[in-house]
């Protein structure tokens, strides 16, 4: 425990952010009200950003807040508001057993990882400190060139997909679908079918 003997400011930062993160994380999973969960998650993300700073990962810390807290979670909160999801009623959960499963599983997982962590000791941090914008950028446009380009495909796809799904179906669309379904399933449609169709 000589680690505690030489306690530093960075330890305090770590402990502060870590405890904040854990409390907020529990808040995420134990709250009934989605918006509280969301706020809990935002706090987790911000404290993780703080932890990234203690790891000298400045760029990632900033991005963590901009992307996660500033974009993703806004989307979550936005959807909660849009759908106006209020507190869940205390309904009988069909899968109650999962809850009883959760605690032992939780402990088991923690136990395994902690046991593994015991083996790693306290390795010295590398003298090479990556984390500035320059470091990240250099890696991004050399070694990670291909993944970086691939993310553009990912984002494009996500835009197409989410636009498609979230678009409201107009009454016109619904009508059209119904007509098409009926036509496709009507025996009479066989006669009307165009020449490219053959009978099975």
């Amino acid at each position: 425990m000589e680690q505690f003997a030489q306690i530093q400011v960075s330890h305090l930062f770590f402990l502060a952010f870590a405890s904040l993160a854990v409390v907020a994380a529990f808040n995420v999973i134990l709250q009934r009200n989605p918006i509280y969960s969301a706020i809990g998650l935002i706090v987790v993300m911000c404290s993780l950003a703080g932890l990234f700073l203690t790891l000298s990962a400045e760029f990632i810390a900033a991005i963590q807040i901009i992307v996660y807290a500033g974009a993703i979670m806004v989307l979550f909160v936005f959807v909660i508001m849009l759908l106006n999801i209020r507190e869940e009623d205390a309904k009988a959960d069909r899968q109650k057993y999962l809850k009883f499963l959760a605690v032992p599983l939780f402990l088991a997982l923690i136990g395994v990882v902690m046991a593994a962590l015991k083996t790693i000791g306290n390795p010295a941090a590398s003298s090479n400190v990556p984390g500035t914008v320059e470091n990240v950028a250099e890696g991004m446009f050399t070694n990670y060139l291909l993944p970086f380009e691939a993310t553009s495909v990912l984002i494009l796809m996500a835009i197409v997909g989410s636009m498609f799904l979230a678009r409201r179906e107009s009454a016109e669309d619904t009508n059209e679908i119904e007509t098409a379904l009926n036509a496709a399933n009507q025996p009479t449609a066989v006669e009307e079918s165009s020449e490219e169709e053959v009978h099975a």
Binding site: L55, S56, I72, L75, S126, M140, T151
Partner: peptide, 28 residues
């Protein structure tokens, strides 16, 4: 940080992009 290797942070960057895409689609 401990390995002194920027790869981990690049990975995080990719994870964030993926998370964003996933969030968009998931919420949709």
């Amino acid at each position: 940080r401990f390995l002194g290797d920027v790869t981990g942070q690049l990975f995080v960057f990719i994870v964030m992009v993926v998370a964003a895409a996933e969030a968009a689609v998931g919420l949709a």
